[in-house]
Design a protein around this nucleic acid. Structure first.
Lengths: 349, 349
DNA sequence: CATGGTTTTGCAACCGCTCCCAGTCGCGCT
DNA sequence: AGCGCGACTGGGAGCGGTTGCAAAACCATG
């Protein structure tokens, strides 16, 4: 436990290299310096183990090279994937993520103050709770924001998501095509745009096909919530013959309820999710699900944000990428769809 | 897309409130200001939507209120849990996490430069690859580091982990107590301290009981790696009757291989993991596993780091907390251990 | 050798905040 | 009235960089 040493500064390097600190700065920022000087400077820096302070740099350049990422919770398997991919993609562009794991706290002022205090270059809101309000505040403070997997109801904040309604409609059509009579849907939180849009797309498609509205109940975006809803329905009178869950995390909960009652998914009752998280392909789950075009969403998000940062403007585009239905074993197959050797395939009508 | 507005500075607030910028600073940092002035300042700040710049503040105080967190990959379910808990715990202490998702890149210099350039107050290395070297560099640069779930072979870097050897030994004893004859172990990467220590603890215990060394092979810390190892063993001559995987992620892969061959875990062959990730209790997995004392580990990590920061010294303590074996269905039970109503319990001999 | 152009260089002024220091002010005493 | 004291206050010097600008150095020319 020895006390900390003094960090070398640019002036130290300058002195050692026999140049001015401007030269040092230029050497490190790709400015114009004679080859001769640059070499001396780099050597001096190496000797001193000097690294320019990002903090000081941020102060003058007004760029922190940090992106704030807000997520509600990482136990929905979808989000770790998002975090990892965003992190990788932003890292490639020279940005790092500052993490804000929120838990739907009532008072978002403190978080907001922090978010904005850090001088972030941009913010990605992958959290569903209160995202719109936070987005509005950031935008007002001049920080570019893009909402991820969630759309601003007022249509003003930029965002990237998949086409929830179309996706859910595709699920509905698939379910109908495979002869289901009484589909039901397990929704997420009421405030969540993706939940309501997926439900809406599903119901709309049913209506279009002349079917009755599907029963719907909230699983609160949790495993156990979905489990309970599914179980209650299965045990109740006239159980549904298909369960569409607005995300995979809940679909897995529903799957468990099905097994819990000794039924077999895909035979006795169908379960379909939304997201296509990476574990959905585990044979034990073998979940048929609407795959979000994750790569594309990440790419779009990063592009949107970087463009906004570069142009010093507020992003405003709303993108909705279309996903695919990936067919696995948890839902009865539509005619013509058989399990291939590879185990899965996609479906489009 | 309108251009960004000028952010208000402390001087703006000072002017509006009719005080000096020192007063504004004091008002925001809990310094001494008359009640009267404080009120005017806060009001002015509210009007201007002023938030002190963390960047500027960091420059003078030499504290960024940011902790670097390096993780190798988030698809091992254990790590999202770690990230979330660390984030929560540090947030409570007023720190935010800057995320570094590494992928075992060969050249860690760039990452290092970044890590150290951000002026982090501390670093947590939850990544296994190269952790020791990174730790050494950080320490040399005067940044407190603690290694998480991984211990420095040279014993110089501070770290918190669970007692890997004791845990693995407990697993071995349990397997023996439940009558297994040919346990085998699926290890992780060779460089990973937890992998080698868990293997060592397991083998040591076997030896102590007068048994032959267990067969061991690497699953590379991946699902598919573990799947393949397990499958090859099961299909080969004299298959093991128990599979100890050095983490749950691989145990789940092994579990799949077992099912794949039409066998039932816990009856035909036992599978035991290490970590007790939250999904391990899913009935479909029902994984018997050595639970890492996660809460305790998080708490210890945060405490260690905060203490180091506060005292401006380098942490040096190595803590190894002891975990428990949680009994579920994936491994044949030892005599006297029956499934309770609750479904799981712990075991200690 | 003076000339003009092109590099290369260092000075100094910030960036927005903290914090030391030297006041200023009001107040109760003697 | 003069004094000492404590509570507040503002000035200003940094923190470690970046950057505009003018001066210096260099380099061919004519």
């Amino acid at each position: 436990m020895h006390s900390v040493i003094e960090k070398p500064t640019g002036s130290d390097v300058a002195r050692l290299a026999g140049v001015s600190k401007s030269a040092v700065s230029r050497a490190f920022t790709g400015g114009v310096v004679s080859e001769e000087a640059r070499k001396r400077i780099l050597e001096a820096a190496r000797l001193l183990k000097y690294r320019p302070s990002n903090t000081a740099r941020s102060l003058t350049t007004r760029q922190s090279r940090m992106i704030g990422l807000a997520v509600t919770s990482l136990d929905n398997q979808f989000y770790p994937e998002v975090v990892e991919k965003l992190s990788d993609r932003f890292a490639r562009a020279g940005y790092r993520l500052l993490l804000f794991v929120t838990h739907g706290e009532a008072d978002l002022d403190p978080v907001l103050n922090e978010l904005l205090g850090y001088g972030l270059d941009g913010v990605v809101l992958a959290s569903s709770s209160m995202a719109s309000q936070v987005a509005a505040e950031c935008r007002e403070a001049g920080v570019p924001v893009v909402m991820f997997n969630n759309v601003d109801p007022d249509g003003v904040q930029a965002g990237v998501s998949s086409d929830d309604e179309a996706g859910a409609a595709l699920v509905a059509r698939y379910l109908l095509a495979s002869g289901h009579e009484r589909p039901a849907v397990i929704t997420g939180l009421g405030q969540s745009s993706s939940s309501v849009r997926r439900l809406r797309g599903f119901q709309y498609e049913l209506a279009r096909a002349g079917r009755a509205r599907a029963r719907a109940s909230s699983g609160d975006y949790t495993f156990s919530g979905a489990f309970e809803v599914a179980r209650a329905w299965i045990e109740g009178p006239s159980p549904p013959d298909a369960l569409f869950c607005v995300n995979d995390h809940m679909a897995i909960g529903a799957l468990h309820a099905v097994h819990h009652r000794g039924l077999t998914p895909g035979r006795d009752i169908s379960v379909i999710g939304f997201d296509n998280v990476s574990i959905a392909h585990w044979p034990l789950l073998d979940l048929t699900t609407l795959a979000q075009p994750l790569e594309g969403m990440i790419e779009a998000t990063v592009a949107l944000l970087l463009k906004a940062i570069a142009s010093n403007t507020m992003p405003t585009t709303q993108e909705a990428l279309t996903g695919k239905l990936v067919i696995r074993g948890s839902a009865r197959r539509a005619p013509g769809i058989t399990r291939e050797a590879s185990g899965e395939e996609t479906w489009a009508d």
